[in-house]
Computed example of a mutant assay.
Amino acid sequence: MAKVEFRPTLKSMNVANDKVKIVLEIPKDKIVNNLGSLAMLEGGKITASFRPETIPYTIPYDKTNNTPTIRYEESTDGEWEVIKEEQTNLMGEDDIEKRNFIVELDVVDEFIKTVQLDYPGEINPDDVLNRLAQGSSIDEIAADYEMFADDVEEELNRARSYYAPYAAAWDEKRNREA
């Protein structure tokens, strides 16, 4: 049975005659080695799952001076921490606006595998990501955590959301230093 994995862009969706036509687009060089396997699947029934390749996060900003009230920074001992601006405690909610940002899923996963942080959840996201990369199934990993596979995936996604602003700051720092 052929299995083909790739990361396309969802180009369009069309609903007509009780059917949904989904058009995915990917650069040819990213899938050229899988074209034969993909052709074997054409016209047959397949299983597809979609997940976003970006993770959204929110940062509160001080409206008066247009600066974030929370920053994610690496300390002198190499640990990543949240820095909260103290003067914002005196500000009212009207003085703060939440701004939405996104970070690439790959950046967050790389951050999780590179930087040691204590995640307050039920799994070790670094362990889960490394085992998935080594070919372990989510079912095997879930059994080791004594959880259901769906719960492990949900917890991994919570960890990714938790780390998203850290990962964005980390990525920005390493790009500045490159």
Results as ranks from 00 to 15, higher is better:
D29V: 02
K30A: 13
K30H: 02
G36M: 00
G36R: 00
S37H: 03
S37Q: 06
E42P: 13
E42C: 15
E42F: 10
E42Q: 09
G43K: 06
G43P: 07
G43T: 08
K45M: 06
I46C: 03
I46P: 04
T47H: 00
S49P: 01
F50D: 07
R51K: 13
R51Q: 09
P52N: 10
E53L: 10
T54Q: 08
T54E: 11
I55W: 02
P56G: 09
Y57G: 13
P60S: 12
P60T: 05
Y61Q: 13
D62P: 15
T64S: 12
N65Q: 08
N66R: 08
N66S: 15
N66K: 13
T67V: 15
P68H: 04
T69V: 15
T69F: 02
I70S: 03
Y72Q: 00
Y72C: 00
E74N: 03
E74Q: 07
T76S: 15
T76L: 06
T76I: 01
D77G: 06
D77A: 14
E81M: 08
V82P: 02
E85Q: 14
E86Y: 10
E86K: 12
T88I: 08
T88N: 09
T88G: 15
M91D: 06
M91W: 09
E93T: 06
E93P: 07
D94R: 05
E97P: 01
K98E: 08
K98Q: 01
R99M: 12
R99H: 14
N100L: 10
N100T: 10
N100P: 06
I102F: 12
V103K: 12
V103N: 07
E104D: 07
E104K: 02
L105Q: 09
D106R: 07
D106T: 04
D106F: 03
V107D: 08
V107T: 05
V107E: 06
K113N: 03
T114W: 01
V115L: 05
V115W: 01
Q116S: 10
D118Y: 12
G121M: 02
E122H: 08
N124D: 14
N124Q: 15
P125K: 10
D127S: 15
D127H: 09
R131K: 12
A133R: 04
S136Y: 11
S137R: 14
I138G: 08
D139F: 07
I141N: 14
D144M: 12
D144R: 09
Y145W: 02
E146S: 01
A149D: 14
D150M: 10
D150L: 11
D150C: 03
D150K: 10
D150S: 09
D151A: 02
D151F: 00
E153P: 11
E155D: 03
E155I: 09
E155F: 05
L156T: 08
N157L: 05
R158P: 15
A159C: 04
R160I: 10
Y162E: 07
Y162C: 10
Y163C: 11
Y163W: 01
A164Y: 02
Y166D: 06
A167Q: 14
A167F: 01
A168P: 10
A169F: 06
A169V: 04
W170A: 06
K173D: 12
K173N: 04
R174A: 02
